[in-house]
């Protein structure tokens, strides 16, 4: 049994420390994925928190066979984001704030520059087709493997690789036309 499988099965049995380990392991990637989707720190924090609360509530129903654990978490995150946009009655659009948590917050100038760059990136990602955008967010934001993305989106790995390639070509064109 892999280490993560062992931790997950302990968490299913109600071991709080095991679930805390899973939280530590996945928080950053879930937050990044959600942030890139909603573009707002407060909403990203609320939704990320909700992902883990829902996961803890539903962990007893999780079965390893049907989906790897991180894909299960990202499915919860994806569904919550979709619900969030539905409730707000808006399409997936990124209202970017400037108050994002960045590692260089101690250096305000650098943080501001980085925030601006991330803003540009998310604006460009927004221009991609929805399938390309999802692949880019799952590969770069969530750092999932191509196989995991394929399983999550119910597509073949070949399709995911093609979407990824086309998206990067498109992003390259956008960034060169920005300059």
């Amino acid at each position: 049994m892999s280490i993560e499988k062992d931790i997950v099965s302990r968490a299913i049995k109600g071991d709080g420390a095991a679930f805390a380990q899973l939280y530590e392991e996945h928080l950053k990637r879930i937050y990044r994925y959600v942030y890139l989707k909603v573009g707002n720190r407060t909403e990203a924090e609320d939704l990320t928190q909700e992902v883990f609360v829902k996961a803890l509530e539903a962990i007893t129903t999780y079965k390893w066979r049907s989906l790897p654990f991180n894909s299960w978490l990202f499915r919860i995150a994806h569904n919550l984001v979709v619900d969030h946009f539905r409730k707000q009655g808006k399409v997936e659009k990124i209202p970017l704030d400037d108050d994002m948590a960045l590692p260089s917050k101690s250096n305000p100038a650098l943080a501001a520059e980085l925030a601006l760059e991330i803003k540009d990136l998310t604006k460009d990602i927004e221009k991609l087709s929805s399938a390309q955008r999802e692949v880019i967010l799952l590969r770069f934001g969530a750092e999932l493997s191509t196989a995991e993305v394929a399983s999550l989106l119910a597509k073949s790995t070949g399709t995911v690789k093609a979407l990824q390639h086309n998206a990067i070509v498109a992003l390259r064109k956008m960034s060169s036309s920005d300059k």
């Binding site: 937050y31 770069f140 990067i168």
Partner: peptide, 16 residues
């Protein structure tokens, strides 16, 4: 190079 920029920018997004 484009991918490298995306990796760098997205890895700067961190939870507080």
């Amino acid at each position: 190079k484009t991918s490298h920029v995306i990796i760098q920018k997205s890895s700067a997004i961190q939870p507080a």
